[in-house]
Design a protein around this nucleic acid. Structure first.
Lengths: 103, 103
DNA sequence: GTCATTGTTCGTTAAATTACGAACAAAAGT
DNA sequence: ACTTTTGTTCGTAATTTAACGAACAATGAC
């Protein structure tokens, strides 16, 4: 009868999308790293993390598809950093949701 | 070689668990509702939301299993509310992650 | 050109997620 | 006892997720 879009707000859709992307320890690890040190190389991640590089690649793709990170080619490596614009949006959405006073 | 637990912190595991639970629009909707109005009945949710009640039940179970909500029998209905203790932990973890100043 | 290096894509597999309706269980009302 | 209300559980199906290794592509070094 009623459609999802009439009930679930756009913000809820978006924050759920971000939350989903953060819903894995490896991806949390990457995001936390990036929020601390501005950028990283997947080769370095691949060394520290005990997972196949193809698996890591998939996780990075997840984060990229969710808009949380972006990759920049810096041959022969790829430099990953936070996607500032979307990250700001995500933070704003989470802060609002969490009832934090700012924003 | 190295184990996941040596790399991924406990906090990262926990916040990822919470994020995963929040990674669906329906569940975001419920959590947002509960953070506003302290409690709700799944019957009411079932009416507003265009999904089967069995599906809703599953989503509520997800949130319950993640520790974000708790159900209290109030026959014949079930009253759902935030699980305060875990919600505080989740907020604290998210705030730390998001780089918010408080907490 | 050939060889490393770096990271993605492919193919596969196992498990988890999402969704539905039907069946079921519990408890209160008649 | 029967019915109604409320919500969970069951059975099923389609899709997505997570993981691996092998194969592949791009680029720089030899």
């Amino acid at each position: 009868m009623t459609k999802v879009e009439e009930i679930i707000t756009n913000d809820q859709q978006r924050i759920a999308r971000y939350a989903k992307a953060l819903g894995h320890p490896i991806r949390m690890y990457v995001m936390e790293l990036l929020s601390k040190q501005s950028c990283c190389y997947s080769g370095d991640l691949s060394e520290e993390l005990p997972i196949a590089k193809s698996t890591l690649s998939q996780h990075l793709k997840e984060l990229k598809d969710a808009g949380l990170i972006q990759g920049e080619i810096e041959t022969p490596r790829i430099k990953y950093c936070i996607n500032k614009e979307n990250w700001e949006e995500a933070k704003s959405l989470f802060n609002k949701f969490l009832g934090t006073k700012d924003k």
